[in-house]
Design a protein around this nucleic acid. Sequence first.
DNA 1: GAATAATCTTAACATTGCCTTAACAAATCA
DNA 2: TGATTTGTTAAGGCAATGTTAAGATTATTC
Lengths: 225, 225
Amino acid sequence: MEKQKILIVDDEHDLLDLIEYNIEQHGFEALRADNGKEGIALARNHYPDLIILDIMMPEMDGHEVCAILKEDKKLHSIPIIFLTARGDEKTEIKSLEKGADDYLTKPISPAKLMSRIKTVLRRVNESSDPGSVIHVKDLEINKERYLVLKGSKKYQLPRKEFDLLFFLASRKGKVLSRDTLLNEVWGSGVYVIDRTIDVHIRKIREKLGSDYIETVKGVGYRFKE
Amino acid sequence: MEKQKILIVDDEHDLLDLIEYNIEQHGFEALRADNGKEGIALARNHYPDLIILDIMMPEMDGHEVCAILKEDKKLHSIPIIFLTARGDEKTEIKSLEKGADDYLTKPISPAKLMSRIKTVLRRVNESSDPGSVIHVKDLEINKERYLVLKGSKKYQLPRKEFDLLFFLASRKGKVLSRDTLLNEVWGSGVYVIDRTIDVHIRKIREKLGSDYIETVKGVGYRFKE
DNA sequence: GAATAATCTTAACATTGCCTTAACAAATCA
DNA sequence: TGATTTGTTAAGGCAATGTTAAGATTATTC
């Protein structure tokens, strides 16, 4: 169980406070840095889900930070929202060219900020191949990233747990026998005892809660509709 | 519910014994033949749900048997699993061309065999299964979901109650004796007192009301038309 | 490539709730 | 009315599932 992390890099501490407050109000975890160097270090340690980057900063400006992040294999796909001074169109264009996903002009409206953040995160999460992403109840089950999103929380399930959840969710409402699950999730060439499934179900419930998968005694399991 | 029948055709009696034992352990009924001619005769008399066919047999080999079965209108849709000698790739290809649903190489792992059998049976059953939902009166009895819907209300009946209701509803209007119900719903190898049925009927009535199942004194129960 | 961590599987024990039975009440038939 | 069949209820046994932990396996890191 893990909140989605948002890294904010800005040299104005008042603004950092404001953004941090709003982000945490919405259930995300905030990471803050007041200069580019620290920002990059935090990114490398925490792999945030989104980075908000001020452009005007002493020493290393936002574009430089962005360039360095985009060179890092493990970080280059993290979406970035730039903060620009009002009406500086040249900067805006440059930002988008650098690989920004969005930009915001100061001064910032907290509501607008949160709306943009969610839009960007959604866009990134939904990327490509539909069908590999299932939306059920308040869950988003993303097969490409082997990630389950529940509101602003992020769950990184191990493969078997994820595959099991994905299969059940893709046939929600239907009761699936342990035999079916073994054949479809484990594959027809794999021989494990069926109680293995129960253990995985237990772990999924432990992480996501018991509101999703229900037991039909003597028959199998079912994803609640 | 009647057991599914599996016909095994092989000239090695040790292997027949082994397969028969495993098949019956998993709740199927085994039919055995040690040559192709007898295999075809058994198939015509019993209409098995699946046929396991050895290829290397004296007189008539598995491919010939398969060809004859595929010509018979009443038998041609029965799935066939071939047994081939290990690594004989040409045979494998030929088998699949002949209309086999799967093939297995000797020597056989019982676990693997059972897994394949279940996979093949499931594939066959799943593809054409509109009979898993019954609409009678204001009820929808959905076997896939193991749920009974009455208007907008959902009822989750325990397995035996559900199976009993499903069986009665699938033969609505017909009076079914307790003996018949025991045999078809409980299975032919299960010994329970017939009054057990009455208790289950009572519980179904308690949940869904008394408008569905009526008693025919001295004979049995009937789902009202 | 060894060490470390994470995941998967199994086994054992705990718990739940379904199934069956038995016993009595009510209904039906002779 | 007495005999037989079915309705109803409740309790105990038991099979299915929940839960936990430890060993086996696989991935990851240095």
